[in-house]
Amino acid sequence: MTSGRESAFVLEASQLSKSYGERPALRELSLRLVRGRILGLIGPDGAGKTTALRLLAGLMRPDAGQILVSGVDVARRGAALRGLIGYMAQAYSLYGDLSVEENFRFFAAMLGVASREIPAMEERLLGLAMLLEHKKKPAGTLSGGMYKKLALACVLSHKPPLVLLDEPTNGVDPISRRELWAFLRELVDDGTSVVIATPYMDEAERCDEVALLVDGRIVAHDNPTRLMAEHQAGGEKGATFEDVFLALSEASSEKDEKS
């Protein structure tokens, strides 16, 4: 049993590349994340966010590069990862004929949550998702956003060191999005680390650091306040985070076209 060396980083990915057929989806991506932080992965549709998260979760092998999660090599330790990583896919599925609470209990047990801890987690997470009063409904009859929130509650039911979330709030209403972010903050205060892909710029602004992915490459990686400040120093007063995002992604795809 090697537990891996102790490292300040929960996640260390170096030089990851991945192509689908001829098409490169990720090019030499390197990322490091220290404990207790939220990293936002943003970028235009098709930039490679899902590909990156699937590699980090160990669901897909990179063509090149290495990933360590809590010092464990993801390529070699498939089964041990279950306790280390919580992953929510962009398209996920629950049991439509099982009720909300049955789904939650099933996934929590499968993810290794001790059975005596399940009721408290259930109260907390379904409460946060505003699903307590819908506990008995079959998941198949939930609205789009309620279904998404139930999936998220299931994934967060255990507290792994690293949580990977692929656009978890698409279709989730503004109130629940806020509740979710408050909950993520609590998790992170307890030492969990989060990588979250999101199309919402207000969520990107709530992250401790943001990596902007364009055409499979990281073109900027910094704290959101600093990204904003740098951009505003370039002239535009009153720029929003969305403006910064658009300017940076456009500048880098132009570069791509020239090279």
């Binding site: 962009q90 710029m201 658009l246």
Partner: peptide, 12 residues
């Protein structure tokens, strides 16, 4: 019905 859910800022 939620035509832009998940769509990035420029495309939205």
């Amino acid at each position: 019905d939620e035509p832009t859910a998940g769509v990035a800022p420029r495309a939205r």
